[in-house]
Design a protein around this nucleic acid. Structure first.
Length: 749
RNA sequence: GGGCUUGUAGCUCAGCUGGUUAGAGCGUUCGGUUUACAUCCGAAAGGUCCUUGGUUCGAGUCCAUGCAAGCCCACCA
């Protein structure tokens, strides 16, 4: 053994030995343990890997997969039939954004391609780079069964997702509706509520006069969006507001288009704010939409999908929102309908989480999942602890989210995703809006009935970019084209619709062997940022399809921040690439830095090079204990009844205590405490005290036997944390007596 | 507006159901060519455990108030 531990000579070699030996596969482990007369537990232990984006390099967050691998290795050594299932995600929206940036560099955009071509181009871009993430996970030491790896766009996944959609439709859980959605004109797609955020902005607040019919009075209304006045259908005041009591029920004139609108009373209106009177624009504001429904008001769209004003916006039709706003203000001013402007007004505007571009609430036909009943099942499962959480706070958050759930818009207007398996008969969707590239690659847009006169169905189908079918358009659900005259819905599923079924698709629901053996799974590790996006949806889907929960235990880990406790971000320039630390200090040190250097269960945990370096030193420490043992002679087999020295008895005592403590802590998922306990024992008890004391003994042989025995148990306890260096030491020291590699050796109980 | 979390050594953080002299990594100072390791060893400095009050034989740990920082949800036109 070399004087210093060098991870570079070890990690790749050891990983290959494990993988080639099939030790990541439950079947082979079971077989080998039986051959060697090691106990085999009938129970299974299964962990699903949250699928990383197929084409992006790993970031620090992925290094927390060490938690999953730690649990896997722990249970594997305990003799459970252990399976850690890997996979990769297509990450629809994220990937498309990255790809579109590439296109932009070539002066192209998504509009230059028909959707089929664009999809295939993005897919091959993903495939070209898809081994990147997997290879990096291997470098971290993940002991997952790569022969079972699943890709989110594989046939198996598609088939399950389609079947689920069909079943939900049959059960009346899928509906199509015009709904006010979060639409991003910039990205050209809808976002769910979870994907939008509010940011503070300064927007001029305009006070607009609405003339009361047959009177000289007017009501003044404050708004930051005068261009939407074209879509106003009412004025609302609070019923308790004495200033306006006499006006309720009267009629005002819309200052921009002359529409006659009622003054209604609704206690949603805040008496304190603005003038106490609110314009109601159900087509472009979520609260107004609710009020509109309550009072049976008309829905008017004055902004279209491109972010331009519609024909209903008369004088400003065709303009973009910004110019339309300026123009509207000008018109109001000319009509003497503008009372005043508060230029310094600050408000919160709705933007997307990705690029912080404005979201327009727009009326759009969309596919929805009815959530009330589905969520109720999940809620009960969580309340009854059928799914356990590592901290009570996550259970609470889950309960409150599930209790206040809204219907889920599942259609996205992006290309890179799983296309919704819905087909329209072109002869029945004449009023649908269709966009396609003709054979000369010119972008053609119009109503279905008009286009079909000029173009062949084949040409439209070939170049198809988008169909926006009316809510009442007839459709068929089918995995394949149901007939000559059919075009498929161009919307794709929200990525969480497919990843929400990950426990089912990876294990090959409903008939796969793995599904029968390993479902429900045992341990699910994830960060809190996708608690609702993902964890909740997996519970919902599993309960819906199988009546079973998808996993028994959820472990929520924290965000990995930099050494100053600041969030890592590209703009701050403090992003740490985990692989550079693996190269510099070894995967073992990196894993310890995350698992033991902080508290992985805390909301955030700080990570630094110093920590990793500290644990690299620890790897070297145990390496040198191993060298010391290798260089000294020992004579007999360890026998607990033949301990002559008090020191020997003490260290054995301490070791037994250590084993108990580590087991207790691991079973409570206190990984940092378990690891820290081992660290202390090895360095400050075993090495600094015991090992130093026996150097002075005359008869060293018996002491070396004790040391060898204690150290062997330490190496086992440490294996789930630091798999590489422990396995390498095991191969050097204990191969003579132990035929099995450390990875499947028996755990000290 | 509603909810949550955190406040411990110079820095980043551990501290399990309350129980002796409060710990780690890095940093600082002093001393070590001990034949496993300088990626090391020995020693030291450094903490009113945010404030105040309470429960208790006993509080870093439990409760309340205040102060400070951060997060999540909802969003007032």
């Amino acid at each position: 053994m070399e004087k210093n531990y060098n991870h570079k000579n070890v990690e790749e070699k050891i990983y290959k030995m494990w993988e080639d030996g099939g030790y990541f596969r439950p079947e082979i482990c079971e077989e080998k343990r039986k051959e060697l007369n090691l106990s085999v537990n009938k129970e299974t232990f299964c962990v699903l890997m949250p699928p990383p984006n197929a084409n992006a390099p790993l970031h620090c967050g992925h290094a927390t997969y060490s938690i999953q691998d730690l649990m896997t290795r722990y249970k594997r050594m305990q003799g459970y039939r252990t399976l850690y299932v890997p996979g990769t995600d297509h990450a629809g929206f994220e990937t498309q954004v990255v790809y579109e940036r590439q296109l932009k560099k070539q002066n192209k955009s998504r509009f230059d391609f028909d959707s089929k071509t664009l999809f295939n181009d993005i897919l091959s871009f993903v495939k070209e780079n898809s081994t990147l993430a997997i290879n990096q996970l291997k470098k971290l030491g993940m002991s997952s069964d790569w022969t079972r790896s699943t890709f989110m766009l594989s046939d198996q996944v598609l088939s399950t997702v389609y079947n689920t959609f069909e079943k939900m439709h049959k059960d009346g859980l899928i509906y199509r509706d015009v709904y006010l959605v979060n639409y991003s004109p910039y990205h050209g797609t809808t976002f769910s509520n979870l994907e939008t955020i509010h940011i503070e902005a300064t927007s001029p607040l305009y006070f607009v006069k609405y003339q009361i019919k047959n009177s000289n009075d007017y009501i003044s209304v404050a708004t930051v969006r005068p261009e939407t006045i074209y879509g106003d259908v009412a004025i609302a005041v609070n019923p308790k507001d004495k200033r306006y009591t006499e006006y309720v029920g009267k009629v005002v004139t819309n200052p921009l288009n002359g529409r006659e609108m009622k003054i209604i009373a609704d206690d949603y209106v805040d008496l304190e704010f603005g003038t106490g009177a609110l314009k109601i624009t159900p087509g472009h504001d979520f609260n107004d939409y609710e009020i509109g429904r309550k009072h049976n008001l008309e829905l008017i769209s004055v902004i279209d999908l491109e972010g331009k004003m519609t024909q209903d916006a008369k004088d400003v039709a065709g303009m973009n929102i910004k110019s339309a706003r300026e123009k509207s203000v000008e018109i109001l001013r000319n009509k003497n309908a503008l009372e005043k402007i508060d230029e310094k007004y600050t408000n919160n505007i709705l933007v997307d989480y990705k690029d912080n571009k404005p979201i327009e609430p727009l009326l759009m036909p969309n596919w929805f999942v009815k959530m009330d009943k589905l969520a109720l099942n999940a809620l009960q499962a969580v309340k009854k602890d059928r799914v356990k959480f590592n901290l009570p706070v996550w259970k609470k958050e889950m309960i409150s989210w599930l209790s206040n759930i809204r219907d889920w818009p599942i259609s996205r207007q992006i290309v890179f995703g799983i296309r919704i398996p819905v087909w329209y008969n072109v002869d029945e969707c004449g009023s649908s809006h269709i966009v396609f590239l003709d054979k000369n690659k010119n972008r053609i847009e119009g109503l279905g009935k008009n286009l079909l006169d000029k173009y062949s169905l084949e040409e439209i189908g070939q170049g198809l970019q988008k169909i926006i079918a009316g809510v009442d358009t007839k459709y068929l659900i089918s995995k394949t084209r149901p007939g000559e005259r059919f075009l498929q819905e161009t919307d794709t599923f929200d990525t969480w619709f497919s990843s929400g079924q990950w426990p089912l698709t990876t294990l090959k629901y409903p008939d796969g062997e793995d599904f029968k053996k390993f479902f429900p799974t045992s341990f699910m590790d994830s960060m809190w940022d996708i608690l609702f996006f993902w964890i909740a949806r997996m519970i919902i889907f599993s309960l819906y399809l199988t009546k079973e929960i998808p996993f028994k235990q959820v472990f929520i880990h924290g965000r990995v921040d930099d050494e100053k406790g600041q969030k890592m971000s590209k703009s701050r320039g403090n992003v740490i690439d985990p692989i550079t630390y693996v190269d510099k200090y070894g995967a073992d040190a990196l894993r310890m830095g995350l698992l033991v250097g902080g508290n992985p269960a805390a909301k955030t945990t700080s990570f630094s090079e110093d920590k990793v370096r500290g644990y690299r030193n620890f790897a070297n420490k145990i390496w040198n204990i191993a060298r010391f043992i290798e260089m000294s002679e020992s004579d007999a087999q360890f026998d607990k009844n033949k301990l002559d020295y008090a020191d020997d008895k003490q260290i054995i005592d301490d070791m037994e205590k250590l084993i108990k403590e580590v087991n207790t802590k691991l079973n409570k998922f206190k990984f940092n405490l378990a690891g820290d306990t081992i660290y202390h024992f090895i360095w400050h008890n075993l090495a600094d005290k015991y090992l130093e004391s026996i150097k002075k003994r005359e008869d060293k042989k018996s002491a070396m036997t004790v040391l060898g025995y204690v150290f062997k148990n330490c190496i086992k306890l440490l294996h789930p944390f630091m798999p590489f260096v422990t396995e390498e030491i095991w191969q050097n020291l204990y191969k003579k007596d132990q035929k099995e590699p450390l990875i499947i050796s028996s755990w000290p109980e």
